[in-house]
């Protein structure tokens, strides 16, 4: 019984250090992020007129069309992020928004009634935003 350290009631052995080191290494190994997609949402939501909600798979690069009152909005997925590629609306705010990739972010095109949204909240981000 190799006594490593102890006083009063806390007596530690060599085996403790070995076990803790092993556990620590295992936890560290499992905790390392796996690639650029770690922590990113897997799917986006596309909201369109009439309360329709469609899921958009972010793991596959694609361009999809969403139909609204003004025409078709083209939404592009690339590298786990999404943006509005083309929109028939007058102001083009939705295109100017650019790429979004973090949970909670969204692109809104009210004239053509299309919203692309990444569900969830970023850690530390507010639960809702008044605007």
């Amino acid at each position: 019984m190799k006594r490593l350290w102890g006083e009063g009631g806390v007596r530690l052995l060599l085996g403790d250090a070995a076990v803790l080191a092993l556990l620590g290494a295992a936890v560290a190994a499992l905790s390392l992020p796996r690639g650029p997609a770690a922590g990113r949402p897997a799917a986006a939501e596309v909201l369109s007129a009439g309360g329709r909600v469609t899921a958009l798979d972010l793991s596959r690069d694609a361009v999809i069309e969403v139909t609204g009152p003004l025409g078709d909005t083209k939404v592009e997925v690339r590298g786990g992020r999404v943006r509005v590629l083309f929109s028939p609306c007058p102001r083009q705010d939705c295109r100017e928004r650019g790429w979004i990739g973090e949970p909670g972010e969204m692109i809104v095109c009210l004239p053509n009634e299309v919203v692309v949204r990444l569900p969830g909240t970023r850690r530390g981000a507010p639960d809702a935003i008044v605007q």
């Binding site: 019984m1 007596r11 530690l12 052995l13 060599l14 085996g15 403790d16 070995a18 076990v19 803790l20 556990l23 295992a26 936890v27």
Partner: peptide, 21 residues
């Protein structure tokens, strides 16, 4: 499982840590 080595190879500390993980 870890209890088999308790008091001989390691103290309850290791048993508890392994159990918690």
């Amino acid at each position: 499982l870890m209890a088999r080595g308790a008091w001989r190879l390691w103290s309850p500390l290791a048993v508890s840590a392994a159990g918690a993980v």
